[in-house]
Design a protein around this nucleic acid. Structure first.
Lengths: 341, 341
DNA sequence: ACGCCAGATTGGAACGATCCAGAGAGAGGG
DNA sequence: CCCTCTCTCTGGATCGTTCCAATCTGGCGT
């Protein structure tokens, strides 16, 4: 174990100890197949004895690569239920490790500027690549980074331009909602309502289309069963009340757990409880809230672990200047069944 | 704006453009007060024109500092309500930025080994310092890092050894719970129960002591009003039922929101609802779940933003090899009032 | 006119790795 | 016996910055 106050071992130190040149030690680490077995053995032993680890800064300087991936962390909205970032981050860090990469976090000075922060890291060669996550509304980062030929992978589709050539990974929200509709319809529900986001949200409309399509596929009507608004508990509550007052749905499929929590509140307001006997509710995100709220909110779970794996795969291709055979991935979510349905 | 495919500007480039030496450009950036005003002006203009930004790797190599802070991300327990890491991480990244630092995430190969992962980053000089967060049960990292004279700051007290010299920041759980007790007692509750964690948890016992002390200070009895168990919803539920069956508390103060959610479920099981008219419940962590569960769970909120600020302050001291005048900070949480109390 | 001094600027060396071209050692062929 | 070729290994140059010591400049006192 190298102690910090003692001088760290360097290539030169190891080389001397093993009686070889610097370059040979370097090769022992980076291209061991170049060494004669006995030499390799000797060098490896010296490395072990001295506890040598290559100095990152020096390596980065020479190879012009930092093996760091930048991720901009934007403030999560307080009071929204998701907390997806936590799960995603874990998987991402894990997947990156497999690929010899590390995740470097940064934030913007100016949160409203989607480009802020990228430039500084790039110009100083602090990171090799980016993972871009905040693509919910358009995605100027993509074209900006593309222009500069910076390797990056997006979590989220380029909705405005589905043909955009950059690599991305996304979750099939539509399929997820269709899953929810199937589940409810299988259980005999016919009046299944949608409580979702504003029309301006690409993601919201994608999820909603899963509801519309699957409802029609199963011969169910969607008329007067749809509500759109903000991603807040309050909206979910009001929308659920309004729908219950007018067209008496027997189930709600929601664009998010946040909205779904609102629907649950509406049911509570009316003294009725969700679940098999009452009105069913299905959320989206499988947030912690969905897991802990009684009696458990059925919810569509995004495969974030797999998303991270795919992102890193594409990232590796880009970093190796390799053309990915499949630069886009749309992953299927699954339905987590709980008490509310 | 420097494009990636074009050669990046270097000190030499700028120096030539400004008609000065490399070192002068370096000084213009790091010690501008050394330059004559007109020279400084000229150099700065050249820097701006060429879009020059110092190369991190080269700087790191020369100065033996990376300005990176390592943070080990350990898997959050699914189904526990907190999600504190998300909030903390944001604040930490933000505070670090002010100090010219970045946060580098890593994970352990072997999660059960609290030291795993630190060594590799350290040996390769990838980070200058660490923020250690997983100190809930003992804290071998601290002594390990201390031994190696690695700068680090812990989020969490060294419970086993309060005199330990390393810098740390923590939240006063005891005071937070006392706040909750006061709040409930002020509202007329006298039979206030504790639902907390195992005796082996330092944090759990600290929080509990806030309940015990404040109850006694206010002349209230704690006899047969305490339950201890796992940090799960299920335990909270069972414990609440048991207490309600035997000694009829009118309020629950819980060691976590997770446990509190269990208590809420117990009330729901009995057809009674929490709040002013029924049994009050107070949680701990102010998790997203607390915010979204109807009618809103009153909860003790940790000042994570301030924790991050203090951690970075101590970190800066350590990195500057400066002795902090106050290397420990215990911050007071606050009570977030909601419908359950 | 000269020396002195502080302030401003410079050029070489160093940080620790990898790239690159070339040297040394054997093996094999003519 | 020499030449070539391959396999190993080596030493110098280099990445872009900062450290360090030395040099240069101009103002001031005598």
């Amino acid at each position: 174990m190298p102690a910090r106050h003692r001088a760290m071992a360097t290539l030169a130190t190891v080389a001397e100890a093993a009686g070889v040149s610097r370059q040979t030690v370097s090769n022992a680490i980076n291209s061991p197949e170049l060494l004669r077995p006995d030499t390799l053995e000797r060098v490896q032993q010296a490395i072990a004895e001295l506890g040598y680890t290559p100095n990152r800064a020096a390596r980065n300087l020479r190879t012009r690569a930092s093996h760091l991936v930048g991720l901009r962390l934007d403030p999560a909205v307080e009071g929204s239920a998701s907390g997806l970032m936590d799960r995603f981050l874990h998987s991402l860090v894990e997947s990156c490790k497999e690929a010899g990469l590390h995740v470097l976090l940064f934030t913007a000075e100016d949160v409203s500027d989607p480009l802020d922060g990228y430039d500084a890291l790039l110009a100083s060669a602090a990171v090799d690549a980016f993972v871009v996550t905040d693509t919910y509304r358009g995605n100027p980062q993509a074209s900006w980074l593309e222009e500069r030929q910076v390797p990056f992978v997006a979590f989220g589709r380029p909705w405005e331009d589905p043909q955009a050539p950059f690599p991305w990974v996304d979750v099939d929200g539509r399929a997820g909602v269709a899953l929810a509709v199937d589940h409810l319809a299988d259980r005999g529900h016919e009046r299944i309502a949608w409580v979702g986001w504003q029309k301006t949200s690409y993601i919201g409309e994608d999820r909603r289309s899963g509801w519309v399509e699957r409802m029609h596929e199963r011969g169910l009507s969607t008329t007067r069963l749809s509500a759109r608004g903000d991603d807040t508990i309050e909206f979910g509550r009001r929308a659920a009340h309004a729908l219950l007052d007018s067209d008496q749905p027997t189930a709600f499929v929601c664009a998010s757990d946040t909205v779904a929590m609102g629907a649950l509140q509406a049911l509570a307001d009316r003294g009725s409880s969700p679940g098999p006997d009452g009105v069913a509710v299905v959320g989206f995100d499988d947030s912690v809230a969905a897991q802990v709220v009684p009696p458990g909110l059925t919810s569509v779970r995004q495969p974030l672990e797999e998303v991270a794996v795919q992102i890193v795969r594409l990232l590796e291709d880009r970093l190796a200047m390799r053309r990915s055979d499949e630069p886009h991935a749309i992953l299927a979510p699954e339905l987590r069944l709980r008490g509310t349905s």
